[in-house]
Amino acid sequence: MTIAVGDSVPDVKLKMVGPDDITEVSSNDFFAGKKVVLFGVPGAFTPTCSNNHLPGYLENADAIRSKGVDTIAVIAVNDAFVMRAWARFTGGEGKISFLADGSGVFAKAAGLEQDMSAGGMGLRNKRFSMIVDNGKVTELNLEGSPGQAVDSGAARLLEQL
C-alpha cells in the first residue's frame, strides 16, 4: 500500500552522501524534529531526473527554505557512490541532501516502488514529492505522467508550502 498523508515515513536505513563521506542514517532520525521536503526519482543521471526534476529543486531551494523547510532531500534507488557522483555533477552537493536507497527498502516500505525491468532498470522509485513534518507525511504528490516532473516538481511543492 502506498504511503499517504498522515502516515509516518517508514523506518529504514539509508545512505546519506556527503562531499567526504557516506554515512548510514535511519529515516526516523533523518526526519525527526524537522520539516523536510523529500522528492524521489527513478534514477540518478536519467534524463527527466537530471534535466528537470532535480534542477527545479536546486533553483528553488532558497524559496522552499524560506517557507520554514529545514531540509530538502532527493532519494533514488541507486548506490551511494552513484548518488555522490550525481550530487557533484549537478552542482547539488552541499545544497540538498542526497539519499541512496540502494536496495529499494524505502521505496518498498513506502509503497513507492515501480518495476522498470522492461527498460533495463529493475526496481526503482515512482517519481514523487512529499512534505514530511517530524516524520509525518503532510503532503504527497505522485507524478501522473511518465517522463515529466510537474505533479512532483518544485513549483507544485512551493504552492503547497
Rank of each mutant, 00 (worst) to 15 (best):
E24H: 03
K15I: 00
A63C: 13
G92L: 03
V41N: 00
A109L: 02
S103C: 04
G104P: 05
F30A: 00
F45I: 11
G111Y: 04
D20V: 00
K34T: 10
W86L: 04
G94E: 01
D62W: 15
P19T: 14
E93Y: 01
A73V: 13
G102Q: 05
N52C: 09
E93Q: 07
S66M: 06
E24D: 15
A32G: 01
N51F: 00
P42C: 08
V69L: 07
C49D: 03
E59L: 15
G68D: 09
D62N: 15
F31I: 11
K67A: 15
G68H: 05
E93K: 05
G94A: 11
V74A: 12
V105D: 01
S103N: 14
V37A: 06
G43H: 04
S26R: 07
F81S: 12
I22A: 00
T48G: 12
G40R: 11
A85I: 02
K34C: 04
L38N: 10
D21W: 04
A109K: 12
P47I: 05
A76S: 15
L112H: 06
P47A: 12
G40L: 12
E93F: 02
K95V: 14
N51D: 02
G33K: 14
F31H: 08
S97H: 04
A107Q: 03
K34M: 07
L112V: 11
N60D: 15
G40H: 10
G33P: 08
G91S: 06
F81H: 08
I64S: 11
L58S: 12
F89A: 13
G68K: 10
G68Y: 06
G40I: 10
N60C: 07
I75Y: 10
P55Q: 14
I64C: 11
K35L: 00
K34N: 11
F81I: 08
E93L: 08
K108W: 02
V17S: 13
G91R: 11
G91L: 05
A80F: 04
L54D: 01
S103L: 09
G18P: 00
T23R: 08
V41E: 00
A107W: 11
T90F: 07
S103Q: 15
G56E: 14
I96P: 01
F30L: 02
K67F: 05
T48N: 06
S26E: 10
C49I: 04
G102C: 00
S97K: 02
T90Q: 13
K34P: 02
H53V: 09
E93G: 01
W86M: 09
A107L: 03
V41K: 00
I75N: 13
A80S: 10
P55V: 15
V74G: 12
G104L: 05
L112M: 13
A80I: 02
V69Y: 07
P19C: 07
F39S: 05
K67E: 11
V82W: 00
K67Q: 08
E93P: 04
S27N: 09
V36M: 05
F45D: 14
N28G: 12
N52R: 15
I72L: 14
D70I: 09
S66R: 11
V36D: 02
A73H: 11
F98M: 06
D62Y: 15
G104Q: 06
N28I: 03
G104N: 11
K95E: 09
A80C: 03
K34E: 07
V17T: 14
D29F: 06
G43A: 03
D21G: 09
D21A: 14
R88I: 03
I22L: 00
R84N: 09
A110K: 07
